[in-house]
């Protein structure tokens, strides 16, 4: 177990802070070939390979390579794309957020992970207000089970396993999200 410096926070707030940073790590990792290296542990998620750009494209860019699997939830569901966008936009709006004009589409996994990063960070800030923290945890659980988890699992099934860091990302994210869903109360 790695001791984290500066962990003098009460146990629950510390957990929320760590979870928030992990979500940011995963969000960056799925956004850029070299994203998330400052956050995610190398033993689980190896650093980018030399031909990082090509491997990233081969892993996740369905417009390019035959074997790639899309990072868009729409590509993994038969649901009407605009209907899915409406629900996701409503989720982000409900919590006071709006995507920037140049952001990826609302169903891209890095946008969904960044939303979780925000919710968990907000949970960290309101760690000592039980009601607020519980509302945020139930929102996280519902968002995870309705969108992020099924998307992560589908990516894990379809993603190639010979692309180093990016295959690891596809495998480890559902593992981490399962941990998140199993959590009861204060972890």
């Amino acid at each position: 177990m790695k001791r984290q410096p500066g962990s003098d926070l009460p146990e629950t707030r510390q957990a929320a802070l760590e979870r928030s940073v992990i979500y940011r790590g995963f969000a960056d990792a799925f956004r850029r070939p070299d994203g998330g290296c400052d956050v995610l542990d190398e033993t689980l998620i190896p650093p980018p390979p030399p031909n990082a750009r090509k491997a990233f494209v081969d892993a996740f860019d369905e417009a390019i390579s035959k074997s790639a699997c899309s990072l868009h939830e729409a590509a993994h569901s038969t649901r009407d794309q605009m209907d899915l966008f409406e629900e996701l936009v409503r989720w982000y709006d409900h919590f006071g957020l709006r995507r920037t004009d140049t952001a990826e589409l609302p169903d891209h996994i890095s946008v969904q992970l960044e939303f979780m990063h925000f919710l968990t960070h907000q949970e960290y800030l309101h760690g000592d207000e039980p009601e607020a923290a519980e509302t945020l945890r139930s929102a996280q659980r519902e968002f995870l089970s309705r969108h992020l988890m099924p998307l992560a699992q589908s990516i894990e099934e379809k993603c190639r396993d010979d692309l180093g860091r990016y295959s690891a990302l596809a495998d480890q994210l559902p593992a981490y999200l399962a941990l998140e869903l199993e959590r009861r109360g204060t972890d």
Partner: peptide
């Protein structure tokens, strides 16, 4: 998942980067 714990995903010293970093969102 039992073998893994949340901490195993976190790189040493990563907490230094704790704070909101959100390129894709703005406050409405």
């Amino acid at each position: 998942t039992a073998a893994l714990s949340r901490r195993s995903f976190l790189k040493a010293g990563a907490l230094g980067a704790a704070g909101l970093a959100m390129p894709d969102f703005v406050a409405r």
